[in-house]
C-alpha cells in the first residue's frame, strides 16, 4: 500500500488565542504548534497500522513554510517513512488542495489520508477538494477503516449514526475520532526521524480564492448568575423568562 497522509500544523489546544496588527494576524507569541490532532491521532496512526499489517510506505505531505519542519519530524518520529513539504504559505483551502493534488497526481497513492478538520480554521474542506481535483472518491468523517486487497470497508459518521461503505482504492479519506489510538513517539523513533528523507518541493502556481481580512474575539460572557442549590428549581423560571431558552 502506498499511502499519503496530509498533515497540517495547529496551535496547541491550550494556546491563548490573540491577534496583532489590528486584528489581521494571529499572535504567535508563546504559541506552541502541534500536529493537527485529527491528522496525527487518527489519519497518521491508522495509515501506519495498515502499513504494519500489509506492508508499503507512508509519506507525510504538508503545505507550508519552513516552520512546518518540527511538526513534520514529529510525524516521522511516530513512524512515517518519508515526508514532502510543499514550500508555500497556506493561504486558503483551495490553494492548499491544489498543491496537494498537483503533488499526488502522478504518484499512484492507494489512499490519501486527511484529518476531518483543522482545529484552527475548522474548514473540513481540503479533503473534498483534493478528491475532486484528482477525480477520486471521498469518504468523509471516517471512524473505522479496514483494507482487504484493493477494497476498503469504511465506517463514516452520518446524522445520528454511522454508515458502512465499500470503496476500491485509490480514494481520499478524512479521519475522525475512532479510527485509531494516539501514539506517543519513542526515543528510537525520534532518533530515526532525524535522518528520514524530507523533500522540499516548490509550489505549483495557483491563486488564493479567499482571504481572511480580520479576526475578532467573541464577545465576553456578561458573567455567571449563581442560583442557590437549595433553590435550584428556580432555574427553570429563569430559563423561560429571562434567557428565553425554553
Amino acid at each position: 500500500m502506498k499511502i499519503l497522509v496530509c498533515i497540517s500544523k495547529a496551535p496547541d489546544t491550550t494556546s491563548k488565542i490573540a491577534f496583532t496588527d489590528g486584528g489581521s494576524k494571529f499572535d504567535e507569541n508563546g504559541v506552541q504548534y502541534i500536529v493537527n490532532p485529527y491528522d496525527e491521532w487518527y489519519a497518521l496512526v491508522r495509515a501506519l497500522e495498515l502499513k504494519e499489517a500489509g506492508g508499503g510506505n507512508v509519506t507525510i505531505l504538508s503545505v507550508g513554510g519552513a516552520d512546518y519542519e518540527p511538526i513534520i519530524r514529529k510525524a516521522l518520529a511516530i513512524g512515517a517513512d518519508d515526508a514532502v513539504r510543499i514550500d508555500a504559505a497556506e493561504s486558503d483551502s483551495l490553494f492548499v488542495a491544489k498543491q496537494i493534488a498537483a503533488y499526488a497526481k502522478d504518484q499512484a497513492f492507494d489512499i490519501i489520508f486527511c484529518g476531518k478538520e483543522t482545529i484552527n480554521y475548522n474548514g473540513s474542506v481540503v479533503p473534498g477538494m483534493v478528491a475532486e481535483l484528482l477525480d477520486l472518491p471521498l469518504i468523509s468523517l471516517a471512524v473505522k477503516l479496514t483494507v482487504n486487497g484493493n477494497t476498503a470497508t469504511v465506517e463514516r459518521e452520518v446524522v445520528g449514526g454511522e454508515e458502512v461503505i465499500e470503496v476500491a482504492t485509490p480514494f481520499v479519506v478524512s479521519a475522525a475520532k475512532g479510527m485509531a489510538e494516539q501514539r506517543i513517539p519513542n526515543m528510537r523513533g525520534i532518533m530515526a526521524a532525524r535522518t528520514k528523507p524530507l523533500t522540499v518541493v516548490p509550489a505549483a502556481s495557483a491563486e488564493a480564492s479567499t482571504a481572511v481580512k480580520n479576526y475578532t474575539l467573541p464577545p465576553a460572557k456578561s458573567g455567571c448568575k449563581y442560583i442557590d442549590a437549595e433553590n435550584a428549581g428556580s432555574l427553570i423560571q429563569l430559563l423561560h423568562e429571562e434567557a428565553k431558552a425554553i
Binding site: 473540513s124 474542506v125 473534498g128 477538494m129 478528491a131 471521498l138 480564492s209 479567499t210
Partner: peptide
C-alpha cells in the same frame, strides 16, 4: 454531513472560493 462532503467538490470544480461554516 452532506455539505461537508459535497461543497468542497463543487467549489474545486468551479474554481470557487468556499467559506465553510
Amino acid at each position: 454531513v452532506a455539505g461537508k462532503m459535497i461543497a468542497p467538490r463543487v467549489a474545486a470544480r468551479l474554481d470557487a472560493g468556499l467559506v465553510p461554516g
